[in-house]
Each structure stands twice: as structure tokens, then as C-alpha cells.
Amino acid sequence: MIEFKNVSKVYPNGVKALNNINLFIDKGEFLVIIGLSGAGKSTLLRLINQLIPVSTGQVIVDGVRMDTASGKILRNMRRKIGMIFQSFNIVKRMSVLSNVLSGRVGYHPTWRNVLGIYPEDDKQIAYKALQRVDILEKVHNRASDLSGGQQQRVAIARALAQQPLIMLADEPVASLDPITTVQVMDFLKEICASDGITTVANLHHVDLAWKYATRVVGVRAGEIVYDQRPSQTTKNQFIKDMEIVYGRPIHHDEFVIEEAVV
């Protein structure tokens, strides 16, 4: 579904973010990328939908070369790739409905988007997306009136309205409290699993990675240093292995969710 071939990224200011990445992500996978801040997780994620262009190497999504795509081809690829963010990035001065409908912009000509007229079918898609994240009753609220967890659910609904093949999540729960974290992650996991959406998520917390991922990739200083399926290891071994990624042992008090929840 997603393939990185010898991908490197050097920013214009000379910072080497990623070095010779080779990675193949299967359809339906829930891949979690872990690593320290600045290790290159966010860059890796943004290379998939080319919000950041690659320096060298190839990124192939659903059989299409993303690194050379541009214009209409790139936009049509991006509409197949939903993305949610740490700071939610929904348009705070618009209603919840307008935000979710904006997930449909990739399907319409520019004039239609600018006028903001959406067909009834799109509205049904938006309502269904909001229903799936259990926030349909807020449909006419202004986005800025919602709490953080609710805003992230609207962001998930917007990505769902794209009817995506792939979902990218850049630290989706880093600014949420532990209870909301579990709620948002549960929605993400359940929806992506039932729709067969391939998911790539950056997470800070190793216990979340353990709980939700079908595969965990560790990034350190721009290189992949760890690649394991939680189903093929034990939790103790997994936590011990995290020293490879973080350069120091991980303690239990660094977990967000209680042992009982896991």
C-alpha cells in the first residue's frame, strides 16, 4: 500500500531528517511510529502525502509515485489519504458540518468549493462520519466551541468524509488527557479496522503503541532502528526493546493508560 525506497530528506537549512529509509506498509495495517521528538517521525508521515517533498528516493502509494506527482494527480492522491494532527487543525471559525464537508473538497471543482455548495449526498457522508465518532449532535456548533477531544473527533470525521484508503495520524492524542486519549484512539482503531483503512500513526507513548498497533516501527536520528509486531513478542520484551529507540529504559510511570485498561 505504502512503500519507501531509499528515501532521504534533507531540509533546506541543512538538517538531515531522514536517512535512507526503506519501508513497506501492507494494506489494513495499523502501523505506529515511535521515537523521540526530532527523530523524524513527523517528516516520515508527511512524505506519504507529500506535504513535505522528498530529497532523494521514491515514495509509492497505491501504485502511484508520490515523489514525482504534482498538480491534479497529487491532489487526487491526497484525497485518498486522510490526515489528523496533534493540534486538530480544524477550521475553528466554521461550523462542525462545514469542517466535515471540507473533507469533500478533493472531489469537487474549485468554483464549487469556493462557493461552499455541497450536494445532498456529501451531507449524508458528513452526517454518517459524525455519527461514527458519536458527535452528530454538535453538527451545527461552531468548531471553536468544542473541547479538545471533540475537536479531534471532528477531525477524524473530516478525514472519514474523504472516504480514504489511508489514514495518517500525527501525534493524534498528544494534547489530550488520558481518558480522552483512549476514547479517540478507540474510535480511530475501530473505524480504520472496520473500513480496512491502512493507518500510520505517530505516537509518543509506548503503551499506546503496544495496545493499538499491529506493527511498531521505531525511528531514531532519521533511521529505522526497530520494526516489530506486538503479536509476536511479549509486553516485557517490547518495553525492554524500547531502549533501542529511546536510548534509555522506559519506566511504567511513563505510561498514559493504567495497567487495568491495557
Binding site: N49, L51, R75, N76, M77, R78, R79, I81, G82, M83, F85, S87, F88, N89, I90, V91, K92, S102, G103, V105, G106, N113, A155, R158, Q162, L168
Partner: peptide, 13 residues
């Protein structure tokens, strides 16, 4: 807030 711009670009706008 550039995040909203980035989000719209990610939608294929």
C-alpha cells in the same frame, strides 16, 4: 495558524 492550511492541503485542496 498554518496547521489549518496544512490540513486543507492534505485534503487535496
Amino acid at each position: 495558524d498554518e496547521g489549518q492550511v496544512e490540513a486543507l492541503r492534505s485534503l487535496g485542496a
